[in-house]
Computed example of a mutant assay.
Amino acid sequence: MDGMRDVRTKLAQAAEQYGVEVWQSEWSMLGDGYSSSEFVGYNSATEMDIALYMSKVIHNDLTVAGVSSWSYWTSMDVSRWGHKNRFLLISLVPSGGVDGDIQQEGTFLATPTLWVLGNYSRFIRPGYRRISMELNESRSFFGSAWLSPAGDQVVTVYTNLSDKAVRLNETHVGWKGEAKSIKTYTTTGNKNLTEGTVISGQPVLLDAGSVTTVIYNL
């Protein structure tokens, strides 16, 4: 993670020097070098492992590199050569198998990368701006916070890579009163942006191995 952040810090500094915006376009995990302490490698990785790693990339692109646009490479394709969901969001399965003719019908499957991307793209919309969040961030737990243009909604996105749930102990500074309602949207190995409601006064719980979007309506 340190190497990932170092590269993005230098990119942000260069962008500021030349006064340009940075876009991240056509990202996927087709490159080499992902087998490290931060990723178990493709042979051992589940599709959710790949999606969680993607969340780490998105988080650092947004918060360290300061990108104003983030795009995935391929929306849908046939998963060949053991690539799992490393280069697609929706897996197409021809009726004759992966080597069959996609024009002869088949099935499709939304992969965890689609749902994790949705934890960001569905809720952090154009015009939202990042606001300060003090967090005990680590290699396995990180997040960011965003304010709507009207100032009536705060969106936070947390990634919990650990095998234990996290209970948030929150203090809100500078908010216009307490949230009128709190919604959560959780993606795990068996949840696909599953919606939940947090009762006023109760803590927000983040599942193990999850990406969770928390919406505070002010």
Results as ranks from 00 to 15, higher is better:
P94Q: 01
G196V: 05
H172R: 15
L193E: 10
N169Y: 14
W27I: 14
R130T: 07
V22K: 08
S200E: 12
V22N: 11
M76G: 13
V173M: 01
Q24K: 03
V155P: 09
M48I: 08
R80Q: 07
K164A: 14
F123M: 06
I131R: 07
W146K: 03
V98P: 05
S71K: 12
G96K: 08
W115S: 10
F39H: 03
L147Q: 12
D99M: 01
S121A: 11
V116C: 01
G100D: 03
R125P: 08
M54I: 11
Y120S: 07
A179G: 05
Q17T: 15
L168M: 06
Y34K: 04
P149Q: 08
S140D: 08
A165C: 09
T156K: 13
L89I: 06
A165D: 14
E178F: 09
V214P: 03
Q103D: 13
M76N: 14
L88E: 12
T159C: 05
T187S: 15
G106K: 03
I215M: 06
V64P: 02
D2M: 09
S25G: 11
F87A: 14
A12K: 15
E26N: 09
E105Y: 14
V57R: 11
S210L: 01
S36Q: 00
L62I: 00
V64K: 09
T197V: 14
D49N: 02
W70V: 05
S144Y: 06
F142T: 01
G143E: 02
L161E: 05
V64W: 06
V93E: 11
T74Y: 06
T107C: 04
R139Q: 01
T156M: 15
Y120L: 03
W146E: 04
T46M: 02
V211A: 10
I102Y: 12
G201N: 00
D49P: 03
L206Y: 00
Y128S: 00
T186C: 02
S79A: 15
V116A: 01
F108E: 04
V64A: 06
R80E: 04
H83P: 07
R122D: 13
K84F: 01
R130H: 10
W81T: 04
E38S: 07
Y128M: 00
I90T: 05
S210C: 02
D207N: 14
